[in-house]
Design a protein around this nucleic acid. Structure first.
Lengths: 336, 336
DNA sequence: GTGTCACTATAAATCGATTCAATCCGCGGG
DNA sequence: CCCGCGGATTGAATCGATTTATAGTGACAC
């Protein structure tokens, strides 16, 4: 097995291992001639340094751990992309863990990241893990919450104002003349869901004649949305809402499919207006292009990495709460 | 900084570091009493072993590197999921790299994985990287190609018969009575695209009266599909195809949206039948549920990991080519 | 009482890159 | 001609977990 180490490079270049290391990490300390000689040797032998050894000495790795609630949700894919790009600028890599809204998986990934002595952790938490994060921080691994604020503000966070988002969505529906609204979302254990619902409630509260029905579902998925949509289609016309606010776009797409299905054929938006949340790519690509609440997903990821790097560099820094404002995107599904 | 090492655990348990290591890795070599004493100490101190040190000694890490062409494509997400689950069974983790059909990014991830001395590499290659993979193998890092067969069969691969898939899709369209077909896909540098097209051509070849038009697009994305679809809608009726085979579901969804857009309102499938490829979740959730060619994506990932582990355990093993057969899924978009 | 066997536990060596104190070299100033 | 200075280079120590050869312990047979 032809494992090439600094030692081999050193021998071939006729220098010491220390010099080889310097060529790679502090080239300004080494003479021009030696630099090229060593680089030739590296090139010729195809030397690739052993990260484990480097990490062991450094005390921490050049990776950032990111734990998301659902790797298949385009919103998180976008967050991850933003984080990756920002991290790459600093020479770091992001490893992605998918907790799948599962406490055990979440905990496993935290263990894994601690074993790897990652540079820092970005997490969209599911369970209450503040004590776990506190321990990580005590050991020099900072953490930043993503898409959620920390309960006690002892950690930095980057999130979007879900309350405002919920309010804006429903205000828009009301402005379009809708009065019998339905909120479809769940499970209520997820903070984003309850926040969006609360925002919706507040918008409704200032209008006497508007009614808001809440339909709770098992998961924020296309399938769950379709089921809820089918239930609405099955109702007599008079009992149907005239507008639906779905907790995210996946749910909204499921609802849309149920509404337009063979046989049902509810006219969107004439009979029922529909608005989602997240503004994923598929939202604009839906048959009835869907109104949605846009979150600056890539920016969220990038900002989180930025804060993480600051905290890694200076652990005494004060935690910061960054809250982005969401943006209403009006498309055909609520127009008219 | 309270970094806890085996040494601290050893002191607290009143044993040597070697014994602590044995408790974790070869508990059968240690007496009951000592095992519990050490475990208590580990628990109490919150010890989490340093992976870098472990890796350094072992010579390779407990991670598998996976490089995909497009992390946002649900097909690859599913492949990744299958790989993750299988890897987890063996106590390994998967790190995901997104080459984004970009030679530089692909190469960067290969470097990264080699630095990390990963257990093995799974890759859906973009550029020709056989020589790179050969070097990895010489250094004890096996590689398995995913969704693509190796040119010279010197590497194992797990793929789906794209030729058969293309043929089956078009045979189905022809069986439905369609004669003026269009294939929408690209870029032609991607093997899967050309294979599916070639399969389509063969199905057409045996039918004298069937015509196949090829519309090349820039990328396998919703947007590119929408653009191509708009172009078709703009044609006079007589020049439109009566059936479209899209190179994947993302493209098909774009096409579908263009066909059904405000003003266009082409009836699918009455006027134009539409079939995609991959059978992603969104395909069945589309307004006109979309026919597609299903690939056993999670199984592909799982199988690839399986082969990788075999090769890692015994490097002298012969490379294997596993080819799954795709499956036609008929839904409303081609029925009638 | 001694030798042997079977367990346990220990100490030291090891993996490979980095770092820092020590050394070397060449050259200008005294 | 020697000293001293500064930049270049070296080599040994280091990170922490694993492993291997070694030593310790007790039981048991002779």
């Amino acid at each position: 097995m032809a494992a090439v180490s600094v030692r081999d490079v050193a021998v071939r270049a006729g220098v010491s291992v220390g010099t080889v290391s310097n060529v790679m990490n502090h080239p300004e300390k080494v003479s021009r001639a030696v630099v090229t000689r060593v680089q030739d040797a590296i090139e010729h032998l195809g030397f690739i340094r052993n990260d484990a050894a480097r990490q062991l000495r450094a005390g921490h790795s050049k990776t950032i751990g990111l734990i998301v609630l659902d790797a298949r949700n385009p919103f998180f894919t976008d967050v991850a992309r933003g984080a990756e790009d920002k991290a790459a600028d600093a020479g770091l890599t992001v490893i992605l863990g998918n907790s799948d809204e599962n406490t055990a998986r979440e905990s496993t990934y935290l263990d894994l990241f601690e074993q790897q002595r990652v540079h820092g952790v970005l997490i969209s938490p599911y369970a209450d893990i503040t004590s776990r994060l506190r321990r990580l921080r005590d050991r020099g691994i900072p953490a930043v919450l993503v898409d959620r604020t920390s309960v006690d503000l002892s950690f930095s966070s980057v999130s979007v104002d879900d309350l405002a988002g919920g309010r804006v969505a429903v205000e828009h529906l009301i402005a379009q003349g809708r009065r019998r609204l339905a909120f479809i979302g769940g499970p209520m254990a997820i903070r984003q869901v309850t926040d969006r619902l609360e925002g919706a409630r507040r918008a409704v509260a200032v209008n006497r004649d508007v009614y808001l029905e809440v339909i709770e579902i098992e998961a924020l998925s296309v399938i769950a949305g379709r089921t809820a949509g089918a239930e609405i289609v099955a109702r007599p016309l008079a009992q149907r809402p005239d507008a639906i606010f779905a907790a995210n776009d996946l749910v909204a797409m499921g609802v849309l499919q149920a509404l337009m299905m063979q046989g049902a054929h509810v006219n969107v938006p004439a009979e029922i207006a529909l608005i989602g949340y997240d503004d994923i790519d598929f939202a604009s690509a839906a048959v009835v292009p869907m109104s949605s609440i846009r979150q600056p997903s890539a920016l969220i990821g990038a900002t989180a990495v930025e804060i993480l790097l600051e905290e890694a560099a200076d652990p005494t820094i004060e935690p910061r709460q960054v809250v982005f404002q969401p943006e209403l995107v009006v498309r055909a599904s609520t127009r008219g």
